[in-house]
Each structure stands twice: as structure tokens, then as C-alpha cells.
Nucleic acid binder design. Structure first.
Length: 514
RNA sequence: GCCCCUGUCGUCUAGCCCGGUCUAGGACGCUAGGUUCUCAUCCUGGAAACACGGGUUCAAAUCCCGUCAGGGGUACCA
């Protein structure tokens, strides 16, 4: 384990940074990390944190590492680990160092670093940063209960701080179970935050939290510090929900005599309408997988997420990944929480899809058509032709790829289902059934090779029948697609082909007459 | 309860640090119209915000204080 050989106090990169010169740092290696805990899905907010870290690393020529914070063995799952890997890969945010790719500062899962932690915890104890606590869970609970009843701040009362070193050693030797608690010093702790400026807290407001559990397992707040230090992390960029933790962690850095990294606390992402942050139960859109399943282009999602809490200027909306790298800076991150705006995502995604090469659209929509049972897997040659035509016809309307099934269902349907508006279009005039039959009979099959020619013919036919073009178009569209809107009518003709058109026109006439 | 963070159109934001150029800009959405066979796209227009109250100042969205509101934290979770 490389981390073992690193001596305390040596954090090569961090020493040269102050909180104001992140942007000036070019010569020393910047190291940032994304450190999710694999206890569920990958949160959009997590994805944004990963993105911002990645951006900082790319921008400054640094290293972006992934570390799995899996010290809570109760809640970790392998499935969750996989969604993290998948999600990051999908977004193109693969780490430079991490559990999958390895690296010089591994291992990158906290569960595999226990040995390191134990040694370091011992040292922390020797340095007086931590003290043994023999309080039972029961006593802790009753203390808390009383504090609640007295409407007084809930916090460890510090009983075991008073235990003398000799007593403590004796009790430990005696086999009495104990935890290790942070010994918060007197005074005040100041956090220079890249985004928030200086945040200060009186140390009396920092609790003597448990850092090592009964049995010796370390707790998150200790593991992060040990890891960030030994992995040479220079900038800790994470969600604001960690802000209070940071003060505890700062105490640990100081107790160990280590140089503190630079911190930046990102604003939280809030639920679209309701209050509070996104929760999985109430907000499926909290999970990155939700977007993957809906088929948003990852580059669109990245663009959207990037603009959540950060902006380049007062105009810029659409950016390539390269432009993001070029323009990103942590000091343009806003301080206030951002609500998810899914309408904006739809707009942005639609824009990306519209400007995308056609073959990509074809490739992306195919799985959804397969899943819907519209085409075989893999599609037959005929179906492939159809998919291509559908892609051409609907590219301009798609907001995400999964939408293709509702947009183009009519192409693959055996029988046409009429939407309310389409049904109305079939019945607007009493002679519609007759119109549709005459139109079907007149439809010239040879013209199905050329939409323009077919349209020209149809216009003439309408005029000759004494109809406005619209009078023809609306009922025909209804009969052909069952819908009131969609691609150009003659595009529709070509996609369906002559025989299908005639059949649907005739069914449409039936529906119009009934 | 206690600690911390935040507060510009419905939403994301620019502007705030270095007060006047802000009758507060952009985007999404909404809305009126134009183009088109419909929808989408595209074009043109519109409604829409400095949380509130005090200061400081010739002048405040911009500085200070208070209030209110929202958010986060408050575990032998991360």
C-alpha cells in the first residue's frame, strides 16, 4: 500500500495553495476527487459534483480521482457501485484514478484502507486529537433525551473528556468497550471557502463526535481526512451538505499537523417544485439513471447540469465539453441552491438532438422501438429502412430518445387509434368519408417515390375537387396517423407506402362515417 | 431548539466585490403575432423580479444592521 509510506505532514500539492489562487495554480499538480458513497443511485447533484471536479482537473491540468466512501457496511451495495461507474462513464467523466483504473494512491475504496486508518487513528490519539469515550449507547440516548426535554442544544456532554489517561488505559486494558471522540480545542475555526468566503464557527459549537466506533472501525469524517491527505487531494469540492462536517475535519487536520486542502462547497440542488433537496421517493429525477432511461443525450445532460449553480456570463447556454473546460471557474459558482428545471432540459436536449447526425438518432431510438415491440431485435432490413425514415421525420420533434415510441407509434401500429383531435378532424365535415374514399382511389402509386411530386399532385387534386388544401390535409392526416399533428403529410405517405395509405384511408372513411 | 448557508422575473441566472452606465440583461417556460398542410423548428413582440424594514450616501439591486423566508447540519450514516 503506497499510502502507508506517505509520512504525515507531507501533502506536497496543498501547501502552495491559498484559497484565492486556485486559478493561478499551474505548476503544482492539482488533485481533486469525487467521493460518493455507494448506498443507492447516483444523484444528479453527485453527477454535478463529479463534473465540477472533473472540470477543475481538466482546466488546471490536474488529476481527478474517484473514491468510494463505503465505510458504512450496512448500507453499501454492489449494484450502487455499478450505477456510479455506469453513470460517470455515460457522462464521460471517467476518473483518472479510481477503483477501476487504479493509481498510485490506492486502494480507492475506503473499505480496503482500514489498515491505514487504524495506524493513523493511533497517531491521532497520541497527538491528543482524540480521546477514548466509554459512554454506552444507552447513556448517550438518555443524555440526548434530557437535552431535548430541557430544550437545550443536543450535543455530547463531554463526560469522558475528564477521564484521566491512566484511568482510560486501565479501562481499555480491562476490555471495556470504547469509542474515540474528537477532542475539539478551544477557540474558533475559520474555513476559507472558495465559494462562500470565510465561514467561521465557535469551537464550542463543534461537537466531540465519535471518530472511531466501538471495535475500531473509523467513521466517515475521519476516513475522509485520512484519505484526502494521503491521496494528495489539494482541492475538496463537494456539496454544501458537508459544510458543517468540514469544521470537524479541519480540527483533525490541525491535530495531525497536516496542511489543509482548499475547500469549495457547492450549493445544493433542490426539488423542482416542493421544498427541500431531491429525494428518491418523491423525485425520480433525482437519479441519474432516470435521465439515462429516458434517453437524454449525455452531452445535453452535462450541459444542463453544468448550468445548475454556475454560469459563464449573462448569455452562454449551449456549450461543448471543451468549451466548458475552457470556461469553467469555481469562483463563478453561485451560493444559492438551484431548483431543477426539467422544461429547460427538454429544450436543451431537443436542441442537441436536432443538431445531431442522423445516424446517431437512428442508433439511439432503435432500442426504444425494440423495447416497445415495434421492431425485431435486430430490426429486419425493412424495419431498418422504416426506422431511418422515422428518424428523419421525427428528429425535429424529439426531446429525448424514448419519446420516439409515442411520436412514431402510428408508423408501426397494426390498426390506427384515433386521438380525440384526430377523430374530430374526421367528422368535421359530413362528406369526409366520401372524400377519403375518393382520395384513396385517386392516389397515384408511382408518385410515392417522390414526396414533392406527390404533394403537387395532391394540391391539384384538392383544387380540382373544389377543396382548400387544408380541407384535404387534416382528415387525411387523421386517417393515416390517428393524430392531429406530426411530420409533413407527404413524408407520412412515403413512410407508410401506397398500400398502407389506401388501407388506412379506407378505415378512416369508416370511422368518419360511423 | 442550536449552529451554518442562502435570498434578482414561475425557474436557471447576469449585474453586487470596485454604489451612479439598471427605466435591472439573457435563457427556459408562458403569451400575442408571422412562416408552414398540422405539430415541431424559425422570426418578431409582450407580461414577468432586486423578500421586507431601517440605516449610510447627493445617489443602493449593489455597503451596514434587523426582520422574515428558504435550505443544510445537528448519528457508534455518508
Amino acid at each position: 500500500m503506497d499510502c502507508k509510506s506517505t509520512t504525515p505532514g507531507s501533502n506536497p500539492g496543498a501547501a502552495s495553495y491559498s484559497y484565492s489562487d486556485l486559478e493561478l495554480t499551474v505548476t503544482s499538480p492539482v488533485r481533486v476527487r469525487f467521493a460518493p458513497s455507494p448506498t443507492g443511485y447516483l444523484h444528479v447533484g453527485g453527477a454535478r459534483t463529479a463534473l465540477f471536479n472533473w472540470l477543475v482537473a481538466r482546466r488546471l491540468g490536474g488529476v481527478y480521482v474517484l473514491r468510494l466512501e463505503d465505510t458504512d457496511t450496512e448500507r453499501n451495495t454492489d449494484a450502487s457501485v455499478r450505477t456510479i461507474y455506469d453513470g460517470l462513464r455515460w457522462l464521460g467523466l471517467d476518473p483518472d484514478e479510481g477503483p477501476e483504473q487504479g493509481g498510485p494512491k490506492g486502494p480507492y475504496r475506503q473499505s480496503e484502507r482500514d489498515e491505514l486508518y487504524r495506524g493513523l487513528a493511533d497517531e491521532l490519539l497520541v497527538r491528543g486529537g482524540v480521546y477514548p469515550c466509554f459512554c454506552t449507547k444507552e447513556r448517550l440516548a438518555s443524555v440526548r433525551e434530557k437535552q431535548i426535554a430541557d430544550r437545550v442544544t443536543q450535543r455530547y456532554d463531554g463526560l469522558c473528556r475528564a477521564v484521566s489517561r491512566e484511568d482510560a488505559e486501565a479501562r481499555v486494558k480491562n476490555g471495556e468497550p470504547f469509542t474515540l471522540r474528537l477532542k475539539v480545542p478551544e477557540g474558533e475555526t475559520v474555513l476559507p471557502d472558495l465559494i462562500r468566503g470565510e465561514v467561521r464557527v465557535k469551537n464550542e459549537d463543534i461537537e466531540d463526535i465519535i471518530l472511531v466506533r466501538t471495535g475500531g472501525a473509523v467513521v466517515y469524517n475521519l476516513a475522509v481526512v485520512f484519505d484526502d491527505h494521503h491521496m494528495g487531494v489539494t482541492h475538496v469540492i463537494r456539496g454544501e451538505d458537508h459544510l458543517t462536517n468540514t469544521f470537524k475535519q479541519l480540527c483533525i487536520y490541525d491535530a495531525m499537523g497536516w496542511t489543509r486542502p482548499v475547500f469549495a462547497h457547492l450549493p445544493l440542488i433542490l426539488a423542482p417544485a416542493g421544498e427541500g433537496k431531491l429525494s428518491k421517493r418523491k423525485h425520480p429525477e433525482a437519479a441519474l439513471e432516470w435521465y439515462q432511461r429516458k434517453g437524454y443525450p449525455p452531452e445535453a445532460l452535462l450541459n444542463w447540469i453544468c448550468l445548475l449553480g454556475w454560469s459563464f456570463d449573462d448569455k452562454t447556454e449551449i456549450m461543448t465539453r471543451e468549451e466548458m473546460v475552457e470556461r469553467f471557474s469555481i469562483d463563478r459558482v453561485v451560493k444559492s441552491g438551484a431548483r431543477l428545471n426539467l422544461e429547460k432540459l427538454d429544450w436543451m436536449s431537443g436542441d442537441y438532438i436536432r443538431r445531431m447526425p442522423l445516424d446517431r438518432v437512428v442508433r439511439e431510438i432503435t432500442p426504444y422501438l425494440v423495447e416497445a415491440g415495434f421492431v425485431a431485435s435486430p430490426p429486419t432490413a425493412d424495419e431498418a429502412t422504416k426506422i431511418h425514415a422515422v428518424a428523419v421525420a421525427e428528429q425535429g420533434r424529439l426531446r429525448c430518445f424514448s419519446q420516439i415510441t409515442e411520436l412514431a407509434g402510428w408508423v408501426f401500429a397494426k390498426t390506427v387509434a384515433y386521438e380525440a383531435k384526430a377523430a374530430a378532424n374526421l367528422k368535421k365535415r359530413p362528406d369526409t368519408a366520401d372524400l377519403l374514399r375518393r382520395y384513396a382511389a385517386a392516389l397515384p402509386e408511382p408518385l410515392f417515390a417522390d414526396g414533392k411530386a406527390l404533394e403537387a399532385w395532391a394540391r391539384d387534386w384538392a383544387t380540382a375537387s373544389g377543396l382548400g388544401f387544408g380541407d384535404l390535409v387534416h382528415p387525411v392526416r387523421a386517417a393515416l396517423t390517428g393524430r392531429a399533428q406530426g411530420p409533413g403529410l407527404f413524408e407520412v405517405h412515403l413512410i407508410l407506402g401506397h398500400a398502407t395509405c389506401v388501407a388506412r384511408l379506407s378505415s378512416g372513411a369508416g370511422a368518419a362515417a360511423s
